[in-house]
Amino acid sequence: MGERLHDKTALVTGSTSNIGRAIAEAFAAEGAHVIVSGRDRERAAQVVEGIRAAGGRADFLVADLDGSAEASRDLAERARRSLGGHIDILVNNAGIYPGSVTTATDEETFDRVYAVNVKAPFFLTAAVAPAMAEAGGGSIINLGSWVARLGIPVGALYSSTKGAMETLTRAWAAEFGPRGVRVNAISPGVILPHTTEGNEPHPGEIMMKGTPAGEVGSPDAIARAAVWLAGDEASFVHGSVVDVDGGRVGAAVIAA
Rank of each mutant, 00 (worst) to 15 (best):
A10Q: 06
A223P: 11
A29L: 02
T16M: 06
D74L: 09
A133F: 07
R80Q: 13
V249L: 12
T211Y: 07
F110Y: 15
E70D: 12
V154Y: 03
I89E: 05
V181A: 04
L5S: 01
E215D: 12
E77Q: 13
V216Y: 01
T105S: 15
N18F: 05
E200R: 13
A230I: 14
E108I: 00
E205M: 09
I35H: 06
L124Y: 09
G250F: 03
F122Q: 10
R43A: 00
V227P: 05
K8D: 07
G217Q: 05
I51S: 06
N199R: 12
I186E: 01
H238V: 14
I141C: 04
P178W: 03
G20W: 04
A29I: 04
A26T: 01
A79F: 01
A156C: 15
A173F: 07
A252R: 12
I19M: 02
A221N: 03
R112P: 11
A69R: 00
L75V: 05
A171P: 13
N92I: 12
S145P: 14
E107I: 14
S17E: 14
H86S: 14
V62C: 08
E107D: 15
D111I: 10
D88I: 08
N18H: 09
W228A: 13
D40G: 15
A126T: 01
A54L: 08
V113L: 05
A252E: 15
S240E: 09
L65G: 07
G246Q: 06
R41N: 14
F176R: 03
V47E: 00
P130T: 11
A221R: 07
G99I: 10
E197Q: 08
V190S: 09
M208R: 10
D243Q: 11
V147D: 10
I51Q: 03
A173G: 15
T102I: 13
G231C: 09
W172P: 02
R4T: 04
E25P: 08
G2P: 04
L150S: 13
